[in-house]
Design a protein around this nucleic acid. Structure first.
Lengths: 409, 409
DNA sequence: CAACCAATGTTCCGTAACGCAACATTGAAA
DNA sequence: TTTCAATGTTGCGTTACGGAACATTGGTTG
């Protein structure tokens, strides 16, 4: 299949081929390390000669390094290649009530991970975070910090990286990117938390071969991320994926967004707690983990509350399926800890899909916090790597005289 | 931005660059013809030497041809290049009640256009269509027919091109592609009618620079097509875009699909007629054009019926906006003929978007029938051109031994 | 214990791209 | 008739990848 939108396409030159193949090789090393050059040639389909050159480049750029020399029964021993774990990134997961700061290496391993503070005033919070980052840099003095990836519970403008929408976070009009860049002189990349989770799954190799997927993060609200054609769909201005505020029940309760019966108001963890309170107004207040524990202990009211939530989630997924027909739907959030019981409920509701074809596969994605942190790191590394290349091989700028392409707009 | 899904990526070689640049050049010629080689170099950013080689190739493949020699005040005259209008395609737009057959050249001009028949038995209908096509081939004996593009009111499997879902068309289990291929020995490509309309807009250059858009085809039902990242989003199995059956009003009437209050049941032309019948049960039956004419003549009941439809359309668009945040929403269908009056109603309802950022631009796309036909031609030409290249430059197949890439699936 | 040999990785050459600069072409303007 | 400005072509340098010959290496084998 050919790209449709040629008029805005970049010109191609032979360097493009190298960029693509280099990425493929790095990807292979990430997943198959330790791996020899000849194995890379076999796996990738590239010639050993080409692999050697690409590997030399990747080593000189410190993405990878030579490791053990492995002797087999016959022949020249192979020099194994592995990802260079001296390259690390900061990952910052900002939540409504706290922030998690981690140091993650290229393989996705956590070198450190700490809860930083209760967020109140963004200025103070950021100062605190920057101080902690300086300490971590000193502690990992042998590592090279490539930048800072940030996951936020809100929508971020793809260009300016300013917060556009973060109802659960009271950090409006605060420029996270600039604050961090000024504080540490590192590259900063910010993205939505659901997007980060999806990127994390992609980075981990789980989405290999999957070109259309949706990740649904069920927590206090519901956030979604869309993978379309193997790419994150951020929409114009980065606002895509707000399925959480799609009306699913016009007779439902009023949502903070002003509409009635948003999906969030029935499918989120907050909604499950509300169901529980409605069903058992006299019982003591609990949190979502308490509710799930009760449900696991077969407390009928708790089971009913979470089942209602699960049904609502399933109904929303049906809608997403009609809209996007993804191959795979990934769920993260607290409800995944009760998956054996409530996964089938969601699946059943999703299976009521009215249209032809199989419903999408439904699976859980790992722990939300780790996923968001790894995703934040992935966001950074993706952009960082691109930037890296483009400085090595300055792309020809396509000259666009004022009358170049008729943009009918 | 870098592609996420590298593990399924094809290897790149220098031929890729040529393919991309060749497409860019052909695109430029399509939009700027007649155009000289030097102009192409200026517009594209490629060197004149490179352009010469690419142009030579395109001429030898008969995509373009040399035209007039233009003398300017000074210097060597330019040899203008233009798209070769001897290359034509069949475009077939299958509708529930009829089929339209056209011959379209590379520039999108119609060389012929006729309504073929009332569709009943697909076997007979197809036989009739093939006969007409043979006649047209004889009539345009000087042209070279590159293939047949087909637009159908239903979903088509991207690989097998079999009808998956066509509630309004009773052609189940009939293999259109094979029937046409066997009948005429031409390449056949089929796609959904909404996708065809979107491709037609893209082909016409209207979507230049727009990477996220949604087209909404409002007729008896509602069909949508999604442009994500500059590419058609067909979803897994080609079933994406079924927004028409998204529940928008659970208390609404029962839809043929078994659900209650589907968007189609309030936003389609059929719904507008139903509104009219409900409001004026005694008035004589009319069709949608009659209703729109009445509305234009300020018949209050007709105005009310179409206004209800328009509001429903706007509500659905709000939902699409929350989900996908497109830059542009295009509307086709009968209601566009009352756009001055009802466009603002839709716009107003869309403007109630609860989220940050501007709502998408809302515009009409041209006449549905022409768009579907041009889109059908575009579907064919896109695939045809890709095929063409791949035979000229056989891509290296990427060897994938059984243990090549860990597909965690 | 030395020659063998199988597997790894490198080198060298051919081909296909694009960029760049010198050059050829052309015909009106001076 | 000469000049010259604009178009288009040719030839060379660089960067890709593919392919085959070659170098490397160390256990295996006689």
């Amino acid at each position: 299949m050919r790209r449709i939108d040629l008029s805005s396409a970049q010109l191609a030159s032979s360097e493009n081929a190298r960029d693509i193949n280099r990425d493929i090789v790095l990807e292979l090393i990430r997943f198959r390390q330790p791996v020899s050059r000849v194995e890379l040639a076999r796996f990738s389909g590239l010639q050993p000669s080409t692999i050697s050159i690409i590997v030399e480049q990747l080593i000189s750029e410190r993405w990878i390094r030579e490791g053990a020399v492995v002797r087999r029964s016959r022949g020249r021993p192979s020099t194994m290649l592995e990802v260079n774990d001296l390259l690390v990134t900061f990952a910052l997961d900002i939540r409504p009530d706290r922030a998690i700061l981690a140091v993650i290496d290229l393989t996705g391993r956590f070198l450190s991970r700490e809860t930083v503070m209760t967020v109140s005033d963004p200025e103070i919070a950021m100062k605190h975070i920057i101080d902690r980052m300086r300490l971590l840099q000193e502690r990992h003095i042998d590592k090279s910090f490539e930048g800072i990836g940030v996951s936020v519970p809100g929508r971020v403008h793809p260009e300016t990286q300013l917060l556009l929408l973060a109802p659960n976070l009271h950090w409006h009009d605060f420029d996270i990117k600039t604050a961090l860049e000024d504080g540490l002189n590192l590259q900063v990349e910010i993205d939505n938390d659901a997007n980060a989770c999806l990127l994390s799954e992609s980075w981990s190799g789980r989405l290999a071969g999957v070109r259309n997927a949706v990740l649904v993060a069920v927590s206090e609200g519901i956030g979604t991320a869309i993978l379309s054609g193997g790419q994150l769909h951020s929409g114009y201005n980065g606002l895509a994926g707000e399925f959480g505020h799609i009306p699913i029940d016009p007779s439902g309760p009023l949502c903070g967004c002003g509409q009635r019966g948003c999906w969030e108001m029935a499918g989120s963890s907050r909604a499950a707690l509300q169901f529980y309170r409605d069903l058992a107004p006299d019982k003591p207040a609990i949190d979502i983990y308490g509710l799930l524990r009760l449900a696991e202990e077969n407390d009928p009211i708790a089971v009913e509350a979470v089942t209602r939530q699960a049904r609502a989630i399933g109904r929303g997924l049906r809608l997403i399926t009609a809209a996007l027909s993804p191959e795979l739907i990934l769920i993260t959030g607290e409800i995944t800890s009760g998956w054996q019981r409530f996964g089938p409920v969601i699946q059943e509701e999703l299976g009521l899909a009215v249209l032809a074809g199989h419903p999408p596969h439904l699976e859980t994605a790992g722990d939300g916090e780790s996923a968001r942190l790894r995703g934040a790191a992935a966001v950074l590394l993706q952009r960082h790597a691109s930037y890296h290349h483009s400085t090595h091989y300055p792309q020809n700028e396509r000259r666009l005289p004022s009358d170049a392409i008729p943009v009918v707009r």
